[in-house]
Amino acid sequence: MEAVKTQDVGINDLPWKIEYHAERCTMCGSCVASCSFKAIKVEVQAQSITTSEDSQPNPVHHHIARPIIKQVDSLTDFCRGCGMCEKICPNNAIRAVRNPDTRKTLLSKDNGPIKRGGRTNLNAQRTLDSIVVGRISQMTDPSLDAARHTFDIRAPFGRVLSAKELPFEIQDGKLVQSKHTPPVDWIYPLIFSDMSIGALSTRAWEAVAMAVGYLNEKCGLPVRMSSGEGGMPVKLLESEYLKYFIIQIASGHFGWNRIIKAMPHMVTDPAGILIKIGQGAKPG
């Protein structure tokens, strides 16, 4: 008997599985001959059958060797689901069925390691499907316990003064603030990379602005969005939505004069100003 290893490729690892009905098969061999991927083969299968043909029980054992069609378990000669075998079979004895549990992409690694982004949506493998979500409490040592520890992921966004710079005076044993301090918002420190709003069509930036407004006003999530360095449409600069946007200004100075000109007409302050002083890779 052949040795089996736990990491051996099995039929269930492949994207398509052959559904074969031996009782309908006439052994014509057309399917095997037509499979251009060599994904099926003829094999002899040992079978042990007990039958009784009399009116009284009279069991008879048959040991038979029977030719059958079998799928090949290989990462190179695997079934692509072309359906040629099904089309050519005169007796509907064979067809390919999609296997939802396939692990082919993981096993064959023919696209390298699982990666994020890129320029195609054509590969069926999706990044989010590969992310394992676990409890933070199980990932630290000693384990954290929500009942014992306080978790709050909000962070101050703005210019935070050092404690010694705070304009505090003591009055009747209490601290009192004597001057204004720079405005600071407490936000969820969740950062999406900035996509140039200036490069979007009107409908697209309207949708993005409404989405960020929805997250704030309907869902109560203090989300802020950076404009990217491409500037912003005047209409957006002069709208209420500006309070959810962080205006980015970069070395390219795109849209900068438009921002300056819009300033007297702004109805609200932006959430922040982000001055970008460097950038890594740039597509194109």
Partner: peptide, 21 residues
């Protein structure tokens, strides 16, 4: 009433907050 002061303290000295029992 003293929310201004308490918020400013929390902002400036967030790194002195303690946690755990």
């Amino acid at each position: 009433e003293d929310k201004e002061v308490l918020t400013a303290i929390r902002q400036s000295l967030a790194n002195l907050e303690i946690n755990g029992p």
